[in-house]
Design a protein around this nucleic acid. Structure first.
Lengths: 340, 340
DNA sequence: CTGTTAGCGCTTTCAC
DNA sequence: GTGAAAGCGCTAACAG
């Protein structure tokens, strides 16, 4: 005979109070650490709670206090290291402020994002950190209208007034442009992201604005945009290759984009030919040092963005101001010259 | 003057009932889709709910029904693509079953895992999917004792009887051993994971059990273990290099481990020497095709494991049996011969 | 400082 | 089929 499953009901605060020999309210006061309580009842309640393995019922607490101490974090692609790094840092920071993070992954899909916004609303999260896809959906409009404290991460949406914590894209692209000039590249293929995503638009705009002063060709045949995912970027890279405009360097506008571009280059040109093309990227990935030639990159400080975002939304929840912030980038030059 | 923040209180089911001109209970019955309701009240309640933008209060619902429709997913390293892939698939599957997933990241740290178990308990999740670090902590013991439906993902803990959904490590390592023999490697450095993690122990055991029949050296100086993270693996690789035992191939026991090992090889031996060593890995990473030479790998079906895990815990919640499952691996041979 | 009590929003009896 | 009412576990307001 197997041992019985003795599934005991979780202890409630009532059990704790009874065991400690105090009233319900006193137990609550001790356990919430709020008002004054005598050292005696404090000790007895704590002891009773420990003996019973008491863990407060979150939903009941949330219902009564009308707050959950939960933050929603909706990222656009959890498999993108930028976001998994960000999510990790945000969780840590949230925990330090007494919040739990509900992490959701929209997978660069607006419908999934809407579904999660709905879930968050029903969970009654206290605040939302959001890296949106693109335009404002009815669901998002409702979320904003509800007055839920909201900050954007790395991406914004036209017409929604919320603080944004993200990368200084102008600086990052500037670093890439400087590097391209230093390396003497004139014909550069630019593989961007969707213009509907602010990050995509900003990086493209900064590139367009600066390329001429940096001696880079303005041939529009070298400009393409994917979807910020590897497959879409590979297709974009192929479209440039199809045009037959020659180039000596490729600039990928985020990590997955660069991955897709490199894949396409190697498939279409073969490994040897592809190795004659220098690649530079926004986002620094683990393997860039192993590529041939090594890939230089703008490193975004995903962790700092996550931390700042949490602090921002915590400020909003507390009724304080939050003004958003652009986080500086660093450039990792892996070109042969830089290695000497 | 800025526009006023009109933060309207969220509509409650009481508001919906009033607007529809029915009693509270009727509105509830319609919205929960449970009992019989007349077509008339059904229509009016639904209309009222839509007009008010009603979204049910999850905590209140949870309190009353004594269930949350939330699953906890505790992974050991969200930045590891294996887990981010798994988490994504699990979320999708959970949604299909009417559950929301609370995703937490223990970062290969037992204390953080305990903290999240506590949070999950207070949130009153309905079930837990867990990729544990190692041994059984008091917190985990309490979780198990509470009778919470639990399944393990890819890793188990000695002495805890819960179904496990994970990779068929024996098969995967067998594929590596076959490949090593085919490639004619005799001196192979094995960089494993902690023996306290079942995955680490299993892969190591399978390797030890099979290496002799596959003509591989049994020199213990070639065996080392890291922590399943890149830095720890790099140190492990360096320890092997320090011993001066020559080898022609390296076997990394998971993705981050292989990353760290390759980094160490290139730093210590230089790029050219390192390129003489063939590398093979459990976990197939994006960049393995770009490495020189390309890295062959056992591909784990993380998505399938995530889906099966969700189905397993959903079965447990429903009081059904769940027996766990080993998911087959596929081997991706990127050696020069295979490319022809 | 502590006991008592109302009530958060919802589901689910129990009558009718 | 529907209305009324109890109560899930907790916090906070109010007396004492």
């Amino acid at each position: 005979m197997e041992s019985e499953e003795v599934e005991q009901r979780m202890a409630t605060i009532k059990d704790v109070a009874a065991r400690a020999g105090v009233a319900l309210g006193t137990a609550s006061r001790v356990l919430s650490g709020s008002s004054q309580t005598s050292a005696d009842s404090r000790a007895r309640v704590l002891a009773a709670a420990a003996e019973l393995g008491y863990i407060a019922n979150g939903p009941a607490r949330a219902l009564r206090r009308a707050r959950t101490d939960v933050l929603g974090l909706l990222v656009s692609d959890i498999r993108n290291p930028f976001f998994s790094e960000l999510a990790h840092a945000a969780e840590q920071e949230a925990r330090r402020h007494g919040y739990t993070v509900l992490l959701a992954n929209a997978n660069e899909d607006a419908d999934q994002a809407d579904a999660y916004l709905q879930t968050f609303a029903s969970q009654r999260i206290d605040g939302l950190l959001f890296a949106p896809q693109s335009t404002v959906s009815p669901q998002l409009a409702a979320t904003v209208a509800s007055g839920l404290p909201l900050v954007f991460l790395n991406r914004t949406i036209e017409g929604i007034d919320a603080p944004m914590y993200g990368t200084d894209n102008a600086q990052g692209v500037g670093q890439v442009l400087d590097w391209l000039r230093r390396r003497g590249h004139r014909d550069v293929a630019f593989i961007g992201g969707p213009d509907t995503i602010s990050t995509g638009a900003e990086r493209r705009a900064a590139y367009l604005a600066g390329r001429e002063q940096h001696g880079i060709s303005t041939d529009e045949g070298l400009m393409e945009a994917g979807d910020f995912l590897a497959d879409g970027a590979a297709k974009a890279m192929n479209r440039v290759l199809d045009r037959g405009v020659p180039f000596t360097a490729v600039f990928g506008a985020n990590g997955p984009t660069t991955l897709g571009a490199v894949r396409a280059l190697r498939e279409r040109l073969g490994v040897e030919q592809a190795a004659r093309i220098e690649v530079v990227s926004v986002d620094d990935l683990d393997w860039f040092e192993f590529a041939s030639p090594p890939i230089s990159a703008v490193r975004q400080d995903a962790a700092e963005i996550g931390r700042l975002g949490v602090r921002g939304v915590v400020d909003l929840i507390a009724g304080r101001e939050a003004s958003g912030q652009r986080v500086p980038t660093t450039f990792v030059d892996r070109s042969p010259q830089a290695q000497q």
